[in-house]
Nucleic acid binder design. Structure first.
Lengths: 241, 241
DNA sequence: AAGTGGTCTAGACCACGCG
DNA sequence: GCGTGGTCTAGACCACTTT
């Protein structure tokens, strides 16, 4: 099956997306070896330069590792997105982590709680909104409110979330990946609503994070307003080059 | 000047390290364009595949950006690292940014303010400690306390800081690069000392960040405890894949 | 028009892992 | 020995930016 580049997509992107799709849809599972570079070259009628460019991107995005003399193997994609995570959500694996959906996804007007300026095309329609509370060891530590454009993505039912995760659902069922994020952080004092949900007293300090996630679907941004009780479980991240 | 690959180092790594050194030593400054790919090929007697592999790595490590039709440009690397920066320090270029050294580097015992567990070899000697207050538009927004092992790096005089920056001094004068960082974030209420420095009232919420920077010198970590008034200038970061 | 980076071809030789 | 990925050559054509 020979392919040809279009003005839209160079060959290496076609091959990269083909392989990525096989991984995301489970045709290639974690631990499996990809077909060899020569095999893919033959299959698509391309040269090794091209397939290697495609594999380099999959490597950088954390989908595969390369093993000299053996092949390219699919790995669990735990790529540190560089985003902030609650210490304990990812590290203290022994802890009991739980998520309660306070508000299932529903159509609402855009909220002025959102800390970013919305794009013109997003304002053309209502938003899909949902709200969750995350617990560690039965202590509520993170109140999370999320919005996205209902034009960019239909309303997803909370019960259909893959492993309860919104992002995994995007990846597995809609082939949409998180491509980046912008965050702003504020130290604030808890108001009544937030104090009640996080079970702390009004006026306690909370960490407020405004996030805009960018996705591989250009018109889809996900906006999150997160409030954290950092007293027992600080927010943290790590960057290693 | 033709180069040849050794068993130790392939050509693309030689070229990559050559260019990286030019950037680190300030021969190529932020904003400068690298010599064109063809020029580097001619200079080293290599083909474009090779120089492009070298540039890909510099791109991934955040040293350069590529501009089609123009060239490859050196960029400020801290942004690519995904570390948190005060909105305004890096973005609002029109704003007036100022740093006051409250405590010049001096030898002191290690402080128990440090939010990380120190390594055994670090505890063998005293620390070098310095303390700074950063202003935006004459408002103090960030109180910063820093420590590092006096065995790993001699005491640097504040007046010798390149452009007033500790990290630039490490890079330019000591060829030490930041290789990564771990951060923990806490929302806290300001105590007397911090309230006084940041000119806010005691009990106001402040964002407290504990950071351990890892460097290319394995025995050198830099510990920072930072307190931010996020009211007017939130802390932010951005991550693009 | 000239120069830059983006993509691609069609080869080559090497070091590594495994049977 | 054979297949794998790692590196490299010597070209080519394209799209983009600047002069």
């Amino acid at each position: 099956m020979k392919i040809s580049a279009t003005t839209e997509k160079p060959k290496y992107k076609i091959v990269r997306d083909h392989l990525k799709k096989m991984i995301q849809q489970g045709e290639l599972k974690v631990g499996d070896y990809l077909p060899s570079e020569h095999a893919v070259c033959a299959q698509f009628g391309i040269t090794r330069t091209t397939i290697r460019k495609a594999l380099d991107e999959l490597l950088n995005d954390g989908f595969i590792v390369k093993e000299k003399g053996k092949g390219s193997r699919v790995v669990e994609r735990m790529k540190a997105l560089g985003l902030l995570t609650v210490k304990g959500f990812s590290e203290a694996a022994g802890d009991d982590v739980k998520t309660i959906v306070l508000q299932s996804p529903e159509l609402t007007p855009w909220s002025d709680l959102i800390g970013f300026k919305l794009k013109a095309n997003e304002l053309k329609s209502d938003s899909v909104f949902f709200k969750r509370l995350r617990y560690i060891n039965d202590v509520p530590v993170m109140l999370e409110q999320n919005w996205y454009s209902s034009l960019a993505l239909p309303l997803l039912k909370a019960k259909d979330f893959v492993d309860g995760s919104f992002f995994k659902t995007l990846s597995r069922n809609h082939l949409i990946e998180i491509r980046g994020a912008e965050q702003m952080l504020y130290a604030e004092t808890a108001g009544e609503e937030i104090a009640k949900q996080l079970q702390i007293s009004v006026g306690s300090p909370v960490l407020h994070i405004s996030i805009r996630f960018k996705t591989t679907k250009p018109e889809l941004n996900i906006y999150s307003e997160v409030y954290c009780n950092t007293h027992n479980y600080p927010i943290g991240n790590r960057y290693i080059l």
